[in-house]
């Protein structure tokens, strides 16, 4: 019982990180109609930017967090303008191939600058806090939960209350109609990259806080990110949040029955089942 609760608690933390990453992935998928295979590596980039500001430049964590999100968004826009904007005219699968290339470029750029070894934001070891029923969490994990909830609420308000957020949902619904309606689609696409990059950078930083930084940290999460996106329904940011939590908790719970090394396989199996049973996802529209 204690083990079960502990696993669920760990799963929620992992789920938070996956959810943050997949909100942007899902929106980009819905609007640009392609799976961004560089999303995981954008996550890594965010984490390393925060490392740059916090550890290498000695800034406070909160400042490093914000600056890293901003810088990741900047990189995302640059990449979009140089690469994806021109590729948008062709088939969406070409965009996908392009994003695979970007993924490799980003990951190896990180390795070039920061080396292949692991990095930490903080060298100290945190004493776990005992919650009820024998469940232990590290203070950092509570921080992760709080930051995630705050960011999700902000993302929600952005999507519901701002013109740009509504336009994103509109474009995810129907790109052609958005164009004839007079929505400046290129501008909205830029903002979508900003939102996606900011959230995925945050996910990367939180993952780095929870464990450590490595050049492949985001790439290793790509499968769970896609699984959460498809589970929630492509283009549905709310579905992605739910999907993230489901994937996170299932991955942790799976260790009760299979060796932990096969955790990534669980995300994959859930995704495959979803695609077979209900390809539109839990909260997706019928296509």
């Amino acid at each position: 019982m204690v083990l079960l609760l502990q696993l669920i608690s760990n799963g929620i933390i992992l789920g938070c990180i996956i959810a943050l990453g997949s909100i942007g992935l899902s929106l980009l998928y819905g609007i640009l109609k392609f799976g961004n295979f560089a999303h995981g590596d954008m996550m890594t980039l965010g984490a390393y930017f925060a490392f740059l500001f916090k550890v290498q430049l000695g800034m406070p964590m909160w400042a490093a967090f914000v600056l890293a999100m901003a810088l990741t968004a900047f990189v995302a826009i640059i990449v979009d303008q140089i690469i994806y904007k021109s590729l948008r005219k062709s088939d969406s699968i070409i965009l996908l191939i392009g994003s695979v290339g970007i993924a490799l470029i980003l990951r190896n750029f990180i390795q070039l600058i920061w080396g292949p070894q692991n990095h930490f934001y903080d060298k100290g070891i945190q004493m776990p806090i005992k919650l009820g029923l024998g469940v232990r969490v590290k203070p950092n994990q509570i921080l992760i939960l709080v930051v995630t909830v705050a960011l999700v609420i902000l993302a929600h308000l952005f999507l519901r209350k701002t013109k740009m957020g509504k336009a994103m949902r509109a474009m995810s619904d129907n790109m052609d109609l958005a164009k004839v309606t007079g929505i400046n689609t290129e501008q909205v696409i830029k903002w979508t990259w900003v939102l996606g990059a900011v959230l995925t950078a945050a996910a990367g930083i939180l993952l780095g806080i929870d464990t450590h930084l490595s050049p492949s940290m985001g790439w290793n999460l790509l499968l769970p990110l896609f699984a959460a996106t498809i589970l929630g329904g492509i283009g549905s940011p709310y579905g992605a949040m739910l999907g993230g939590l489901v994937i996170g908790v299932s991955q942790e719970l799976s260790t009760l029955i299979i060796p932990p090394t096969y955790k990534p396989g669980v995300a994959f199996l859930i995704m495959l089942l979803m695609l077979l049973i209900k390809p539109t996802g839990l909260m997706g529209r019928s296509v």
């Binding site: 499968l223 498809i230 990534p264 396989g265 695609l275």
Partner: peptide, 24 residues
């Protein structure tokens, strides 16, 4: 059997998963 009825981009994601599982 399970993936070829899917859209081409889903197949892409699925094959990445399969390669990963084989590697594991």
């Amino acid at each position: 059997i399970p993936t070829l009825r899917l859209r081409e981009d889903y197949l892409a994601i699925a094959t990445i998963g399969i390669a990963e599982i084989i590697r594991l």
